[in-house]
């Protein structure tokens, strides 16, 4: 248990520092690039630093960051095994650190969206009438943001751990071939559905509607169903990554 604590602390510290660095880089970029163009085009008077601060990019940064940090498996495994940390402990520490980062990122995103941008997400609109209590709605919003980010991060972890089993060349092949395969599959599915009429009130459509918590009235959708769905999905992805973390070994 003490081992877990120290590995978790190490992993979390590393992540939070990298997240901070990422934010700083993005902020500098958003300040510098418009400024550069403003100077070149001679429209410096129209330049406002607040545009950089209020850019809609930041909430996305959390998502990108979770994808990158979630997928990165082998480099940290090297450090872990060199320091006598088991695969299981590495996995546990990483999942916990990512959940904590996700939690922090969620709070940041919500607060940022409310304070800096006064924006409300589409997701929020679809489900906002289900509960009449505004406090519950905040909780629902938080839950969606947190669970979507978690699902993204866990997917990245699962994919990253699978990729880590391959050589660098194998990884490139998978990264390039998988999207192509998915697109081909999607085209085929669309064609198939047009012929078979799959979306016309079949069980698939009903099931999809159920997963979204669909109700007759937009805005009254049940948010708990999709949230539970996200939890289950994240759990499956975590289990997949757990399995492949167990297969990690030092490559020749």
């Amino acid at each position: 248990m003490t081992r877990f604590k120290s590995v978790f602390a190490y992993t979390f510290n590393r992540m939070i520092r990298q997240l901070a660095a990422t934010f700083i880089i993005v902020l500098l970029f958003l300040v510098a690039v418009p400024l550069f163009f403003a100077v070149i085009s001679g429209t410096l008077s129209e330049y406002s630093i607040m545009d950089a601060v209020r850019s809609g990019v930041y909430p996305m940064v959390v998502g990108w960051f979770l994808i990158v940090i979630g997928a990165e498996t082998y480099p940290q495994f090297k450090m872990m095994i060199q320091n006598g940390v088991s695969r299981l402990t590495y996995w546990r520490a990483k999942v916990c650190a990512i959940l904590l980062i996700t939690f922090i990122g969620t709070i940041f995103n919500l607060v940022y969206n409310w304070v800096a941008r006064f924006s409300i997400s589409g997701i929020h609109l679809a489900y906002s009438q289900f509960f009449t209590n505004p406090a519950m709605n905040i909780l629902v919003d938080f839950g969606f943001e947190f669970l979507i980010l978690t699902a993204v991060a866990m997917t990245a972890m699962a994919v990253g751990s699978i990729l880590s089993l391959f050589s660098r060349r194998g990884q490139f092949a998978w990264i390039f071939l998988t999207p192509i395969a998915l697109i081909v599959l999607l085209i085929w599915l669309i064609n198939f559905q047009e012929r078979a009429g799959l979306l016309d009130e079949t069980w698939i459509v009903n099931f999809l509607k159920f997963l979204l918590g669909f109700r007759q009235q937009f805005g009254h959708y049940n948010p708990l169903v999709p949230e539970v769905t996200l939890v289950i999905y994240s759990g499956i992805m975590a289990a997949v990554s757990r399995f492949f973390f167990g297969q990690l070994k030092i490559k020749k």
Partner: peptide
């Protein structure tokens, strides 16, 4: 195998560089 308590008792200094 995958035993923290045991692996923490070992240290392998190898030719392969595992440090970042």
């Amino acid at each position: 195998h995958d035993n923290d308590q045991i692996l923490g008792q070992f240290y392998l200094m190898s030719e392969v560089d595992l440090y970042p």
